[in-house]
């Protein structure tokens, strides 16, 4: 509504008054921002308060019988447990184990997914890989985790294969989406000027695909870390998933919540802050990245 007011004012009102209009608009925006932050902060306070004081009763009501308070620790207790575990010094090792697994598994998955996506430029390979992509997208990650766990046991190759099978299709889908949006005129021109296949790929296809690859990377990572934690629950003796399973088996809920929340925040940080910052930096030259 502020926008329409300024529109009307620009035509007829004198310059001094326009300044006040702009000032008004600025103030309105300021107010809007304040209100947004007010609600945002209020939501944190409310949710944490509900968790600390009321969640136990809510779950007891849902269960139909009272819940042991030990099974649902509040945020303050989780924070205290975090301090304890951090003091023990086991956390960095567990993080490292999980992150290594993600890096190896998802790195390979990304390469395979991108290669399959590029192969799917040709109709023949599109037909060939269609069902593989469909299955990978629609099947629950749990089945790959269980199959690889039963076949490979505790060997590190099992989780790697499970991660690849769950995430490669996300990369493939993004890459083939990018390929569908390739600048055909450029490619046709390059072809008619007899530019070599390698050069065509290197100088037209890859720069065009880069943002799509990046979207695939971010989507894939958000799935990959979840699958990795799941594989560790079944077939591993270290890492976040393993610690989660141990604490769940021991009914130590505050430890359980500490592990999952710690890794959750870490993964969110990687996903939303680090990867997005890299994306912004790397694609600064683009006006607007239109990657689905």
């Amino acid at each position: 509504m502020t926008a329409t007011q300024t529109d009307i004012s620009t035509g007829e009102v004198a310059a001094e008054q326009r300044v006040t209009e702009e000032e008004l608009a600025r103030r309105a925006r300021q107010k809007e921002l304040t209100s947004r932050w007010f609600w945002r902060i209020l939501s944190y306070v409310v949710v944490l308060a509900v968790w600390e004081f009321a969640l136990l009763d809510i779950f007891s009501w849902l269960r139909g019988n009272p819940l042991d308070p030990k099974l649902l620790p509040g945020p303050s207790e989780v924070l205290a447990t975090f301090g304890e575990i951090w003091g023990e010094g086991t956390m960095p090792a567990a993080f490292q184990a999980t992150l290594t697994r993600i890096a190896v598994g998802f790195g390979l998955s990304f390469l395979i997914g991108a290669m399959v996506g590029i192969l799917m430029q040709s109709k023949w390979f599109e037909g060939f890989f269609k069902d593989a992509v469909l299955i990978s997208l629609s099947a629950p990650g749990l089945i790959w985790v269980l199959i690889t766990a039963i076949i490979f046991g505790n060997r590190p190759i099992g989780p790697t294969i499970a991660i690849i099978l769950t995430t490669f299709a996300l990369v493939t889908v993004n890459v083939s989406e990018g390929i569908r949006a390739l600048p055909k005129d450029l490619l046709d021109m390059a072809k008619s000027f007899k530019v070599s296949l390698y050069k065509r790929n290197r100088q037209i296809v890859i720069p065009h695909l880069a943002p799509y690859l990046f979207t695939g990377l971010r989507f894939g990572f958000s799935i990959a870390w979840k699958v990795t934690v799941l594989t560790e629950v079944f077939s591993s003796s270290e890492g976040i998933g393993f610690e989660m399973r141990i604490s769940a088996v021991l009914f130590d809920m505050s430890e359980f919540l500490t592990w999952i929340l710690a890794f959750f925040f870490f993964a969110l940080f990687l996903e939303k802050v680090v990867l997005e910052a890299i994306e912004r930096r790397y694609f600064r030259w683009r006006q607007a990245v239109v990657a689905s």
Binding site: L67, L71, W225, V229, L230, F256, I260
Partner: peptide, 16 residues
């Protein structure tokens, strides 16, 4: 949205 289903599953299995 970003929470893995595994966390919900384990948590709910302990609660319920």
């Amino acid at each position: 949205l970003a929470m893995p289903a595994l966390a919900w599953a384990l948590f709910n299995s302990i609660i319920f």
